[in-house]
Write a protein that binds this DNA or RNA. Structure first.
Length: 714
DNA sequence: GCCTCTGGATTTTTT
DNA sequence: ATCCAGAGGC
């Protein structure tokens, strides 16, 4: 095997630079994955490095799988010995093995977003704070941000500067306590606790460092400081660390990804080799130039430009539609037209958008035309109620300290344990000083001689023996059979089938059953561990399948790393892309630009930028001006067109009302002063505006009542 | 204890 | 438009 075959000089250099720190700057379509794969193959096949001592971190599980597959072709069996995965998956494994050193049981739970919100709300309650006065979401974001910067609750409290931060600090402390009680971690904890483990237990770190001589990090621009710190810890033994990224494609700052990691890398490893991959193999010259014209407006940016030997190609199509349904109809018609041409198949096409809500109109159009499509993300499988319920059952059986899961299933399906009984039960276990699950055990042992009223005692007793029987079962049978037992013994199956949309929900349950069945080859304990971990760390992009014969509908964020011959970007409007939440902040606005750049550079041959003049949004109608990004693309690269459908006339009153004030307009209010319209919805003959006023925040106003006047921006 | 109704908030992106 | 929490009736 020749790991260097077919590489250009820069790629070859990146593959061969095996010693010491390396920073690879890889623009879109520059063969980044190729470089990583060949670098690993080169390390193993030519340098004689053991695959056991290589760890490669990817952004998604899917990326890890694909890499594993390609390496399988190059290295055969040895590829299975590499450590490949996301930071989260790798950390979950490390904590499973060594978490005891930081107070974590072997069987801990991983809490997702919904669980976390629940814990924050409980924390607020415990502290006697009103969950309506303090938005749990905002608190959780603040806590997550702290964890992404390795700030513990104590440190946070020490350093809090404002009243809000003080509240966050108190909630953070409480939240951590609740997690510990439940033997649970959140996503950020997977990283932070691993880091803490390594820091506090040098002998454990040494073991991993000795194991990992070579550390690779993909999508480095989207790592957060905690992830970077982890990578440094792992690489500290040999300093053979290679990070690959592209600052222009950094689109996850809201998840605390920090571009400064790239600068820090050069500071932390001054001897690092920097290699730039700037030849693009993916797109036409026209597409590259158009994309560059959008991203190059950014001020926080080193000027780099990709070049390509590919043909000039077709102009970028810029299309104005009357409504989102016209926009969607155009997409479907155009896909059909290209299919008829013969050289394009449905899976060659992708439709991208800023927000998941936009997928709806598109989906309808595909359905109406009978065209095959797949939506990535959207209503997520693992967020469906029936799925969460069943996972809660399994999670509680796996980790009995997991009260969040227990409380979810205590009365699902209904078994007569209402709020009242539950409160009594909880205060009883509190008084006795035992965890909830132990309380249930005790009820089992004591039989009817418990301190509750007859009705409650009977209901609790039934739950207790149910739990006892199911946990006995969990030690004996594989995940799929355990799930069967849950469905049967709890009456959940009947409960689902009789519920509204029972048929559909039961199908979901069967799908989960199928996923569980894929863990059958493991012993009961390992199987349950692996299943729950897989479920927790699963991401929507993981299910993306490129060879389906279906057109892909996907958010711009999820599209990162993918490529398609034909790309449509829908909703090129002020308020959507860029999103109105970013109007006020230059850095965020620059990220919107990068997001647009990421979308455009997914396209190989054909790129369509679409917008709708009028769009339904939260019940009302909004009218958004064209995205400023469209204006940055030189006209010579584009071809413009308009589509107007039959159902709407441009001059209709509905449209007129919404057009009066548009998202992005600067306005003046007699009392509130200067502001920016962030949303306008037309409701019949009036429009309801949301305006962001300097210092006052968002206010909702009726256009007919509030005496607003348009003003010029500064 | 459970069901239904209402009003309010809520949607940006996700490991 | 849809989801949630809280109130009130059975």
């Amino acid at each position: 095997m020749d790991a260097l075959a077919g590489l250009n000089p820069a790629q070859r250099k990146a593959v061969e630079a095996v010693r010491g720190p390396v920073l690879v700057h890889a623009g879109p379509g520059s063969g980044k994955t190729r470089v990583i794969v060949h670098r690993i193959a080169h390390l193993v096949a030519s340098c004689g490095i053991s695959p056991h001592s290589i760890v490669a971190v990817t952004f998604t599980n899917k990326a890890a799988r694909e890499m594993a597959e390609r390496l399988g072709h190059l290295l055969g069996r040895q590829a299975g010995e590499l450590s490949l995965g996301t930071f989260h998956a790798l950390c979950a494994g490390i904590l499973r093995r060594d978490g005891a050193a930081v107070g974590l049981h072997r069987r801990y739970s991983i809490y997702d977003d919904g669980d976390q919100i629940g814990l924050v709300k409980r924390g607020l309650q415990d502290l006697g704070l009103d969950p309506r006065a303090y938005n749990p979401r905002a608190l959780l974001t603040a806590i997550g941000a702290a964890k992404s910067r390795l700030l513990t609750a104590d440190e946070y409290v020490q350093s809090s500067q404002s009243y809000f931060e003080e509240v966050v600090g108190r909630v953070y402390l409480r939240y951590e306590m609740l997690l510990a009680q439940n033997q649970a971690v959140d996503f950020d904890d997977l990283l932070m606790k691993t880091h803490h483990l390594f820091q506090s237990q040098p002998q454990i770190l040494a073991r991993y460092q000795a194991g990992y001589d070579h550390v690779l990090v993909d999508e480095f621009q989207d790592t957060n400081p905690t992830q970077y710190a982890l990578a440094r810890q792992l690489a500290a033994g040999q300093s053979n660390i290679c990070v690959v990224g592209d600052p222009d494609q950094s689109i996850y700052s809201w998840r605390q990804a920090d571009l400064r990691n790239i600068l820090d890398f050069e500071r932390d490893y001054p001897e690092a080799q920097v290699i730039c991959l700037d030849q693009n193999y993916r797109s036409t010259q026209t597409i590259l130039e158009a994309a560059h014209s959008v991203v190059s407006v950014n001020e926080d940016r080193k000027e780099t430009e990709l070049w390509t030997e590919n043909e000039r190609g077709l102009p970028v199509v810029v299309l104005e539609a009357e409504s989102e349904s016209d926009e969607a109809r155009f997409v479907v018609r155009e896909v059909a037209r290209l299919l008829a041409g013969g050289d394009v198949s449905p899976e060659d096409c992708a439709v991208m958008y800023r927000t998941n809500a936009q997928s709806r109109a598109l989906e309808e159009a595909f359905i109406r035309r009978g065209m095959p499509y797949q939506v990535i993300g959207g209503v997520r499988f693992y967020e469906r109620r029936e799925i969460r319920d069943l996972i809660a059952y399994l999670r509680f059986l796996y980790n009995p300290y997991d009260d969040v899961s227990l409380l979810r299933i205590v009365n699902t399906p209904l078994r007569g344990i209402g709020q009242r009984t539950l409160d009594e039960f909880r205060s009883w276990t509190g008084q006795v000083g035992i965890p909830l699950y132990a309380g249930l055990q005790r009820l089992c042992e004591d039989g009817p001689a418990n301190p509750f009223g007859t009705h409650a005692a009977a209901a609790l007793g039934r739950l207790a023996s149910l739990v006892r029987d199911l946990s006995a079962r969990s030690a004996e049978v594989d995940v799929a059979r355990l799930l069967d037992s849950v469905l049967e013994m709890t009456g959940y199956q009947a409960y689902i089938i009789e519920s509204a949309d029972g048929e559909e929900r039961w199908q979901n349950v069967l799908e989960l059953r199928g996923i569980a069945a894929s863990y059958q080859h493991l012993d009961p304990q390992q199987g349950l561990t692996a299943f729950l971990e897989g479920v927790s760390l699963f991401s929507d992009t993981d299910e993306l399948d490129e060879k389906t014969g279906r057109t892909t509908l996907i958010t711009l964020h999820q599209a990162k790393g993918l490529e398609f011959p034909v790309v449509f970007i829908a909703g090129m409007e002020e308020g959507l892309l860029p999103h109105f939440r970013c109007f006020e902040d230059r850095e965020q606005m620059e990220e919107e630009r990068r997001l647009c750049y990421v979308g455009m550079t997914r396209a190989k041959k054909r790129l369509y930028l679409l917008r709708a003049v009028r769009r339904t949004f939260m019940g009302g109608v909004t009218a958004n001006p064209p995205s400023r990004f469209l204006g940055d693309i030189p006209r010579k690269l584009t071809r413009s067109a308009t589509v107007y459908g039959e159902e709407a006339e441009p001059g209709s009153p509905v449209v007129a009302a919404a057009v009066e004030f548009q998202a992005g307009d600067h306005v003046e209010h007699p009392k509130f002063g200067q502001g920016v319209v962030v949303a306008s919805r037309s409701t019949g003959d009036d429009s309801e505006l949301e305006v962001m006023f300097a210092g006052l925040g968002r206010k909702k106003l009726l256009a007919s009542l509030a005496r607003l006047s348009k003003s010029s921006p500064e």
